[in-house]
Write a protein that binds this DNA or RNA. Structure first.
Lengths: 151, 151
DNA sequence: CGCGCTCCTGACGAAAGCAGTCGAGAAGGT
DNA sequence: ACCTTCTCGACTGCTTTCGTCAGGAGCGCG
């Protein structure tokens, strides 16, 4: 239930790309803007490229840009590109685990957890993120003061 | 964004305990009922004990039982006892991370994610789990066919 | 063509976390 | 006494995380 540095970096770099309308952006500029170790970031950008989220050109005037409009790329897309499936129990997808005894209904709980994660991550796009115009449901969740409590 | 074996085991063992009304249950019986390595399970039960979720007595007729009624223990309580905070970004709580540039609003997204995790885990009790009478909101989430899709 | 720029890729490495196992001890019951 | 069961720290092997390094490969320009 934690967001890795890699996933965090990937989303931040993608957000930075989403905010630029013209031409390719160098890896170095992204690294500086978001304070991410450059060489690590390039590995991440490469994975985003393989996933078809980002494109790149080398050479002078080269750099990275989004393969699709920022409105069509969700945070879930970015995270899946670098981390694989979003919610696993013991490295297996929740729907494939089999419980016995009194824990039978636990599978439904994990499914519900995943559904609720997706509800946020699949509906927030990079465009939402850069403009601050998050989906209403997300805004509502983040607006509640006790969502900010530590526990 | 994954549930560790430890957390999974802890919840399953707690569910098993919740289903027993009388007297202490041996670790061995819990391990068999849920197919969990015994010695690993005892470590987990010890942590649950330190967190005040479970009590134990040693010797013949000894074993473990819930410290409070099953209706008052949530899945979130159990997970926190063995894993610490439920949602972290880079090992720090989401409300304490500071983003710059175009990623400023990302913190709200993480907060919303955590809130949605809590919405499931803090409202499902061990009693709900053993009886299968999950909270309505959780049932609704798990009922949607595409919550079961892999992606 | 050559040269600099930038991405591309694999290899490597330290540190931490995960999933247990082992063995000795302490408390409880009979 | 003696057996049972929890308690607890140490240890192990494996994988994941979070990077760094070095070299190549493609692109554009003079």
């Amino acid at each position: 239930m934690r967001v890795s540095a890699k996933a965090d970096y990937a989303v931040r770099a993608a957000a930075e790309l989403a905010a630029v309308e013209d031409g390719p952006v160098k890896g170095e500029r992204l690294a500086e803007a978001q304070d991410i170790p450059l060489q690590f970031l390039e590995h991440i950008l490469l994975e985003l490229k393989h996933a078809g989220i980002v494109r790149a050109r080398r050479g002078a005037k080269g750099g990275y840009w989004l393969a699709r409009p920022a409105e069509e790329i969700t945070i879930a897309d970015v995270i899946r590109a670098v981390e694989g499936p979003i919610a696993n129990v013991q490295s297996a997808p929740p729907e494939s685990v089999h419980y016995r005894g009194k824990a039978e209904h636990l599978v439904e709980v994990w499914i519900a957890v995943r559904a609720n994660l997706r509800a946020v991550l699949e509906h927030t796009t990079l465009a939402d993120l850069t403009t601050g115009k998050l989906p209403k449901a997300v805004k509502r969740l983040a607006a509640s003061p006790d969502a900010w409590e530590h526990r």
